[in-house]
Structures are given as C-alpha cells and as structure tokens.
C-alpha cells in the first residue's frame, strides 16, 4: 500500500516534468543541440591533442572518448533527480513544503524538479558510446565487459554520496554551495582523464576524498577496455557494495539528524 502511494507520486512527478519540458520546447531542443555540439567540440579537442601525441599513458583517442562518455552517463542520470538542489531548499526554508507526512522527506526532495532533459542527455551519451566503440574498433571481451558494467552501476552511489553528504551539511552550515562547487570542479575535471595520468600521491588522495573516483570513474572503463585485470573489478564490486551499504546508512542517519535540527518551520 505504502509502495503503491510512492509509485503514484513518482509517476505524477515524472508526468509533470515531461509536461514542463514540453511547455519549454525551445529550451529542450536547444539543450539537445548544444549537447551534440559539446560532443563535437570534445571530439575535436581530443583529436587535436592526439595529433600531437599517439598515446596518453596507455590510452588512445578512442579509449579516452569511451571513458569520457561512459563517465558522463552516470553523472547525467544523477542530475535527473532533485537532490542537487537540496541545500537551496534548506537555506531558503522551502524545505517546509516537503515535510508532508507520511511521505519520506528525502523521497520528495529527490522528485523536486526532475530534469527530463538529463534523461535525453544520458541517452545521447549511450549512443555516442556505441559510436566510439564502433568507429575506433575498440576490442572488448564478454567477461570484462560484464564485470565493468556491474562495477559501474554499483559504484555510482559512491560518487554521488559525497554530494548528498555536503547537501545535508546545509542543515548546519549555510556555506555548503562552495563545497559543492569544489567537489563538482574536482569530479568534472577528473572524469575527463584516466586516473593513471596522476602520480601515486594524487591517486590515493582522490580515492580517499571520494572512493567513487577510483571505483566509478576509472576502474569500470579500464576493465571494459582490457587495461586492467577483471579480477580487480570483482574486488571493486565487493568494495563498492560494502561502501554503498555503510555510506547510505550513514547518510540516512545524518539526514534524519539534520531534519531534526531544521528550524525552517519555526
């Protein structure tokens, strides 16, 4: 019964977002066109770079583009949810509208302004992945592909959990926007390059700051493209499951604690 109600709310939100996207058609079409232009520019950028070098620490042009588009899919799908704007709801007091019992507050926040455009961007990324794999004749074996894919899906929460923690921090501190900016800046810069271009110190530092950088932004693509033994992928899957469970549990506790401290409703 409870799950049915949640499903109904989810469907309504999705429909409302679709209708909004249809209402602002110019915005929707221009976003898609700009996304395609962005891909072309990225392609042009790396083509120019690879006209000066043949290989970048064991990664060719096709490998690098595959890594970029693969990393884009997960992050773009996260952008669909409303979690990205939680801090804004908290600091402006608009979170009050989400404190509707018996619905879970976090669920309602996640449904706030669902970005339908991002779903189409993710589809564009997947199409481009196939294009890159075919155009550059990237060799992929079945087993590494499956291991890499499972790792990619399971490790996605690890990349977005820090964002959720920082967003929740806004219950106690009003300056979280800057921290979010730093994390985004780090993630969006690193996702463009294989982790192997950094020296050991930075690989360890980035992996400690966010295990998702190693387990989501690097290992899956490296395993799929046969640059790392799939056994490491299995270890990665186990580590991701463990981190996911601990991370999500801690986040939910932290969120509930933050909600208790929230004074927006007086």
């Amino acid at each position: 019964m409870q799950s049915e109600q949640y499903w109904r709310v989810f469907k309504k939100s999705l429909k409302a977002s679709f209708l909004t996207a249809l209402e602002y058609r110019a915005d929707f079409y221009s976003s898609i066109i700009i996304q395609i232009i962005y891909f072309i520019i990225q392609f042009l950028f790396f083509s120019i770079i690879f006209s000066h070098i043949t290989i970048l620490k064991g990664w060719g042009l096709g490998d690098l583009l595959f890594l970029i588009f693969l990393n884009d899919v997960g992050l773009t799908l996260f952008e669909v949810t409303g979690i990205r704007g939680m801090y804004y709801l908290v600091i402006t007091g608009q979170l009050n509208t989400k404190l509707v019992k018996p619905k879970d507050t976090f669920f309602l926040i996640a449904l706030e302004e669902l970005s339908i455009n991002s779903i189409f961007f993710a589809i564009c990324d997947i199409i481009l992945l196939f294009f890159v794999a075919t155009y550059f004749s990237l060799s992929m074996s079945f087993l590494p592909f499956i291991v890499g894919l499972i790792l990619y899906v399971i490790s996605l929460p690890l990349l977005v959990l820090p964002i959720m923690f920082i967003e929740t921090l806004s219950f106690f501190w009003g300056e979280t926007e800057g921290l979010l900016g730093i994390y985004h800046s780090m993630i969006f810069s690193i996702k463009e390059y294989p982790l192997s271009i950094f020296n050991k110190f930075f690989i360890i530092l980035f992996s400690i700051l966010s295990p998702g950088i190693l387990l989501h932004l690097f290992l899956p693509a490296a395993i799929i493209l046969g640059k790392i033994d799939p056994v490491w992928g299995l270890w990665g899957i186990l580590a991701s499951i463990a981190f996911d469970i601990i991370g999500i549990y801690l986040f939910y506790k932290f969120f509930k604690y933050g909600l208790k401290k929230y004074e927006g409703y007086g």
Partner: peptide
C-alpha cells in the same frame, strides 16, 4: 582542484 587534472594532462602532453 580544477587545475590539478589539467596540470597533469598538459604536463604529460
């Protein structure tokens, strides 16, 4: 944080 990846990338190139 934005500069570090650029640094390594262009240094290698």
């Amino acid at each position: 944080f934005g500069f570090i990846p650029q640094f390594f990338f262009w240094y290698i190139i």
